[in-house]
Amino acid sequence: MRVAIAKFPGSNCDQDVAYAISRVPGAWSEVVWHTELSPERYELVVLPGGFSYADRLRAGAIAAHTPLIEKLIDYVKDGGLVLGICNGFQILVEAGLLLGSLLPNKGLRFICKWVSLRVMNSDTPFTNAFEESEVVKMPIAHYEGRYYAGGQALRLFEERRVAFVYADERGGVSEECNPNGSDNSIAGVFNDTFNVLGMMPHPERASDPLLSPYGTEHGLRVFLSVANYVKGGA
C-alpha cells in the first residue's frame, strides 16, 4: 500500500499518521506538501488533522479551495481512496466530497478525550478489518466536530454510509455519550461510492497499544482495512 499524507500549512498530524502506517505490514507512506502532491501515484491519500490555514473562515474552508482538492475530486471519481481525519474530515465536507457539515461542539469547548465508537458498516475499504457493530476506542480532539447532516442523517444510515457512531461501552447510543452533539451521534461518514471516509476520531492516535489507556490498537484497523482492500483481500 502506497500512501500520501497531504501536508497543508498548519497540518499537525501528518507525522502521526505516518507513524501509524509504519505499523502496517507492507505499507509505505510519505508526507507530501500539498502543492506537490499527485494523487494518482498513491493508493490512499490521507488528509490529516490539524489547523490548516489556522481554521480561518471555518475549519477546513481554505484548504478545500486549494488545487489539491481539484485533483482529489478527479482521483475519487476514478475510484481512488481518500481518508480525512478531524481537520481532514472538515476539509472534505467543505469541499463537497462528503455530505454534511461540522459545527462547533455543543458545549462550545474544545474536547480531547477517548471515546467509544460503534462500527456501523464493516464492509468497506476502510473498515473491513472491524467486526460489524463492535465497540472500539479512539480519541477525539476538536472544537468543530458536531456533525450536521442537514436532515439527511436517516438516509445516510439507510445507505449504510455511516462508518462510526459515538456510543457507550456496550454500543448503546445516547445523548450522554455523544460528546459534541452530532446528529444521531455520527462520528464518521462515507461518500456514496465508499471510497472516501471522513471521521472526527483519530485512528492514528489509537494505533499503538503503548499509547492507548486501554492497551488497544483499534485505530490501526482503519489502515489495515485499506491495506487488505488494496491487496484485493476485501
Partner: peptide
C-alpha cells in the same frame, strides 16, 4: 481544564492527564 487541551497530538503521550 485538561480536556480542552489536545494532549494526544504527536502520538507520544503514553500516560494521559489525570491517569
Amino acid at each position: 481544564v485538561y480536556e480542552q487541551y489536545d494532549y494526544e497530538v504527536g502520538v507520544r503521550t503514553v500516560v494521559k492527564p489525570g491517569d
